[in-house]
C-alpha cells in the first residue's frame, strides 16, 4: 500500500516563540498517533533543532507538519524551509559529519537530528536556501 498524507499543517517560523510552537505541534501529533515516549521525544527534539536552524541560520521560514500512513504504520513528516544563505556541498558534508566547529549549533543540529529520525533529506545550495525533510514512523 502506498504512502498517504492524512493531514498537513504549515507553521511559520518568524519569531523565537515559533520554535516552541513547532515543537508542540510535533509532540501533539506524535502522541496522538501512538508514538511511544522515546520516539515522541526524538521527533520533538529533532523538530526543535531544525526549527531553530531555520530561525537562527535561515533568517526565518516555515515548518510543514504532515500526518502520514503507509497502510501499516503511522508517521510524521516535517519539512523545514528557509530562504537563508544555504550551504555548499562541502559545508553540508561537514555539517552532516557532525562536530561543533563548523557552524556552531548547525553542525550538531543536523548530524544529531539525522540520528533521531527514520528518514532524513537535505536540499541546499549557496544563496538558494535550505530544505530539510525528516520522517519518523511508529515502530510497528
Amino acid at each position: 500500500m502506498g504512502l498517504r498524507v492524512l493531514d498537513a499543517v504549515e507553521l511559520p517560523i518568524r519569531y523565537e516563540a515559533n520554535i516552541a510552537e513547532v515543537r508542540r505541534s510535533a509532540r501533539a501529533l506524535a502522541q496522538s498517533r501512538g508514538f511511544d515516549s522515546f520516539a515522541t521525544a526524538a521527533l520533538t527534539t529533532a523538530a526543535s533543532e531544525l526549527a531553530r536552524n531555520v530561525w537562527v541560520h535561515g533568517g526565518g521560514g516555515s515548518a510543514m507538519v504532515e500526518d502520514l500512513s503507509d497502510g501499516q504504520r503511522s508517521g510524521v513528516r516535517m519539512t523545514f524551509r528557509d530562504s537563508g544563505p544555504g550551504m555548499s556541498a562541502a559545508d553540508l558534508e561537514r555539517a552532516l559529519a557532525g562536530g561543533f566547529s563548523t557552524a556552531r549549533s548547525l553542525g550538531l543540529g543536523l548530524s544529531g537530528t539525522r540520528r533521531l529520525v527514520d528518514e532524513f533529506a537535505v536540499d541546499t545550495r549557496p544563496g538558494g536556501g535550505t530544505v530539510v525533510v525528516i520522517t519518523k514512523w511508529t515502530r510497528f
Binding site: 515516549s37 522515546f38 521525544a41 526524538a42 533543532e49 550538531l108 544529531g112 540520528r115 533521531l116
Partner: peptide, 14 residues
C-alpha cells in the same frame, strides 16, 4: 533528567 531526554541527547552525540 527523564529517560527519554537522556536517550535523545546521547543519540545526538551530546
Amino acid at each position: 533528567m527523564r529517560p527519554e531526554v537522556a536517550a535523545t541527547l546521547v543519540r545526538m552525540g551530546y
